[in-house]
Design a protein around this nucleic acid. Sequence first.
DNA 1: AATGAATGAGCCTTCATTCAT
DNA 2: GATGAATGAAGGCTCATTCAT
Lengths: 210, 210, 210, 210
Amino acid sequence: MSDIQSGSEQTRARLIEAAREVFAQYGFQGATVREICRRAGANVAAVNYHFGSKDGLLAEALNFSGLKTLQTNNLSADPCPEKRLRLFLKDFMLMLLDENSASRQCRIMARELADPTPALDKIVSEAIAPLHEFLGRLVCEIVGDKMSAAQQLRCVFSILGQCSFYYHTEPVLQRLHPELRYDADEIGAIAAHIAEFSLAAMNQLTRRDA
Amino acid sequence: MSDIQSGSEQTRARLIEAAREVFAQYGFQGATVREICRRAGANVAAVNYHFGSKDGLLAEALNFSGLKTLQTNNLSADPCPEKRLRLFLKDFMLMLLDENSASRQCRIMARELADPTPALDKIVSEAIAPLHEFLGRLVCEIVGDKMSAAQQLRCVFSILGQCSFYYHTEPVLQRLHPELRYDADEIGAIAAHIAEFSLAAMNQLTRRDA
Amino acid sequence: MSDIQSGSEQTRARLIEAAREVFAQYGFQGATVREICRRAGANVAAVNYHFGSKDGLLAEALNFSGLKTLQTNNLSADPCPEKRLRLFLKDFMLMLLDENSASRQCRIMARELADPTPALDKIVSEAIAPLHEFLGRLVCEIVGDKMSAAQQLRCVFSILGQCSFYYHTEPVLQRLHPELRYDADEIGAIAAHIAEFSLAAMNQLTRRDA
Amino acid sequence: MSDIQSGSEQTRARLIEAAREVFAQYGFQGATVREICRRAGANVAAVNYHFGSKDGLLAEALNFSGLKTLQTNNLSADPCPEKRLRLFLKDFMLMLLDENSASRQCRIMARELADPTPALDKIVSEAIAPLHEFLGRLVCEIVGDKMSAAQQLRCVFSILGQCSFYYHTEPVLQRLHPELRYDADEIGAIAAHIAEFSLAAMNQLTRRDA
DNA sequence: AATGAATGAGCCTTCATTCAT
DNA sequence: GATGAATGAAGGCTCATTCAT
């Protein structure tokens, strides 16, 4: 009713936030209910009380509203699809790589891909499929009818592949290039590179095909 | 050394082979020593006896000879760097995606990236660093001095990102595009796309920068 | 007292009724407070609030008025002790076996015998001891002074043993004789058998001893 | 090989023996793996190692050889069925009530009847059904063709009911008759009573029917 | 008075590992 | 040298109970 949340909802929220951290850090299998509850300052039984099971908690921890908002905002940002791609990649990479971002869902999502749980179906239908469709439309606007649908799909994969690489390979990159830090500037530069690389490729490929 | 292996060494070899299968299938954390020993027809204690620990077995199970051979052969395949990139990508994607490939190490490697264990250091120094260097030299040959070192590095990342995407996202792609099969033809088409996309991008970027 | 029960007392009554069902179905240990509260439409904490503990609820759920009424009515039913035994066994077996009987206490009682809880003392003093005494008097009337007190006691046990057998062994009998149904006719036949078997035995034993 | 059992088999045997004690004392649900392992001087994980699960242990703990031997021996003990019934009841009650008896299975069996687990099917088919058949044949020999099959079956139930009563009601009888002790003499007297009571009943019933 | 939330002890089970042979 | 047996820490989860409101 009021803006003061009940104790229950606070605990619930703390559990979800802690779960996002721990799932993002250790993966679903590696995460333990005990660690999640410890971070949330709650009892071991709290997860089962509020969410029924570890699986149930994962399902709740996944929230793609940030990703959806990003796409919605992008659609009305600029009439030029190239500019919109640049903008989207910048926002998307910030969400994916910024350690301070509250949107850890992308990381959980990424871990799911490597080790699917029953929650993957939800992730695919609610987050990944719309994301693919969104990028598919953007690519279509950019390349027009100069590419087959199959080619356009592979271009989407090429863009997403470049993005996810920086997330997946983070521990490796830290070892190979210890000076690398994912601060706002670096993330912006990475996003700009992916945008220019991809636009250049699509531009060249359509020209060549024409 | 001789062609008569002791029973002990046979068991050792079977354990390594079984470990590769199980690690590739379930990841390091999800794999159990019992399952590995069961597949190898060995005792539960065999892993600790032969390799000291589950970690030790992982270290032994990692073998990058296939990846190294691929790079070595590539260097002498053709004087043209663009052609060598196309060739490398085809071989690399076959190794990464072909289910019948004996080279499961790439899959273990890929899982490690998502869930680092102490073995990651070995993977990075023995496989990934050389791979990055190899691709770095190839990119350098292609773009010459028309790109900064930082830009060249990002191009390497863009290429590798496109490659690893098809591996990481396999379970998702199976859901989004159930008709997709990673047979030899499809893998070849994927590799060709990555090659053309990347070459087009690098070509365009160097031209534009010039 | 008045016909307007407070909500609290209604909840209390619903809890007791639900407890009888659940205890009868799953036994004391197998029953859960949550299930009882769920059936009673009450809060999880209601049991401890109203009865202090699960044990306290059991104590309250036990109500032997049906059994007592049965004995009281029997005493004035007929001057002939043999007839009264036949009548009592019929009523008692109906109470024990009829699934539609509201008097589930006998079932709870029977489960207690197999798995005693602190409530057993109450059951023994309020229900079983009077029942044994009642049957003891009836047997005494039938065999008169032709049997020792010890023999009479064993006759009481023989009668009660035959009765309780049909309750305890129900799940087994269902497996051995799937066609068996405890309907009113069958229960009547069972009670008649126990009566005739026991009366014949006592008759013969007193005659032989004489 | 030798008459010296391996350590494994000793532990296994100790676990089974401890399980019989604990299952008999607390029932399957009330028994804990920890308590069983504690009594057996084994680790908590030993039960799952040797028997796969608590259920598996129960299945192993049930061993009806004693009961079978008793029946087999009885068949050749005497040509007179009345004498054989007396003998059987004495042996059976000793097995059922003697606290020092190694044959605790009967107690586990009895608890199962009150709270069936998946093991009940095994108990019924391997122990109870043969027992019922054995007693059925004995009763048939005694009453000949002077009783219907249905009547004979109820006589078997009357005999078994009297026997099991002393087991089921033990905690109650201890409260009502604290002086009662199930020593060999008392058990013999109980068995004799059940035999005479039942034989007298069957004798009288057949005579009456004739 | 009465409840939703939270508790912590305890459950069975699984695991990589170590021990005794 | 090599193994079946045994270990104990830890896992997710359920439970009767208690707490704060």
